[in-house]
Design a protein around this nucleic acid. Structure first.
Lengths: 163, 163
DNA sequence: TATTGTTATACTCTATAACTATA
DNA sequence: TATAGTTATAGAGTATAACAATA
């Protein structure tokens, strides 16, 4: 028995009109930026839904991934990696810490900073979440060959490297 | 004399860490969704900047494009095309109307709806904005061949068509 | 002086519910 | 009953400024 991905809830505008726009927004379809935004929007709600059962949001999932990959990372560096403001990192780290998913360790050599680490609970939740995200991506990209997926990722990274 | 695209303002987190993340967020780089979001974020601030001199935002630019392409479109259909809630369309249409970029015509056959149309002022502003967006995209995609751009757009559309 | 973490705050975007007038 | 437009409001997400502790 799987949880249905689209239950009988009323859809939001963002979810509903994924296809509706394809006829009337033709003047915008030639723009890469427009299609990038729409593609992002169309996968976003499903992505969020794939993490709710673990009580994670996209940002908290990403934070967990980065802290797990970079033990003793500081909040400032985490902010930079996530492209978020330091001030907004604080409350998110508070939440992860209060749920015992990460710890804030003091650093003797620089008493201003915290060294963030995932706990064993945080690690196992992260692994579980990774599987959920992989399932979400698998469904999203089922019509894409491995080569196409790779090509897409490389193109998206090239766009980020502009400037 | 061109307007500098990155003036001497302090960068926001979203702008700053376009590249900073490339080292520390490696566990997330395999996910298409993550790269999609980051690519969208990295072009967004520059896209917004490319429209500010015309006092347009991404959404108002898109609305202008859709109304121009679909004369006498209703607010509900505009909302669907833009993937926005009808309630949020109202204030945006208010603004475009107050700036004489569009008109709200009454429809005799159904007195509930408005038929939206661009004014001549709206049309010329839209054309000017289109050129600005094209310049922005040209810079964004200068390393992409026409074939690559086309391929990227088609992949992004395929993602939107899932489900 | 500069940086880390922090707090408070504001602003934008988006979502929801309730209403009116029409159909 | 259902739909178009509207209003008010609430909730995210994100940005800015100022501060204490530390470098």
């Amino acid at each position: 028995m799987e949880t249905p991905l689209h239950a009988n809830k009323k859809k939001t505008a963002a979810q509903d009109s994924q296809l509706a726009g394809l006829s009337t927004d033709s003047p915008l379809r030639g723009f890469v930026g427009y299609n990038l935004k729409r593609a992002y929007m169309s996968l976003h709600s499903d992505f969020v839904a794939s993490l709710t059962h673990l009580d994670l949001k996209p940002t908290t999932f990403s934070a967990l991934a980065i802290i797990n990959e970079n033990p003793d990372i500081s909040q400032t560096d985490l902010a930079r990696a996530l492209a978020m403001e330091r001030s907004n990192i604080v409350v998110m780290v508070d939440e992860l810490q209060s749920r015992d998913l990460i710890v804030r360790n003091k650093v003797p050599t620089d008493r201003r900073v915290y060294a963030l680490r995932t706990t064993s609970k945080g690690i196992s939740l992260f692994h579980e979440a990774s599987l959920a995200v992989q399932r979400h991506e698998e469904k999203l990209l089922e019509d894409f060959s491995p080569e196409e997926r790779d090509l897409l990722v490389r193109m998206l990274i090239r766009i980020q490297q502009v400037r």
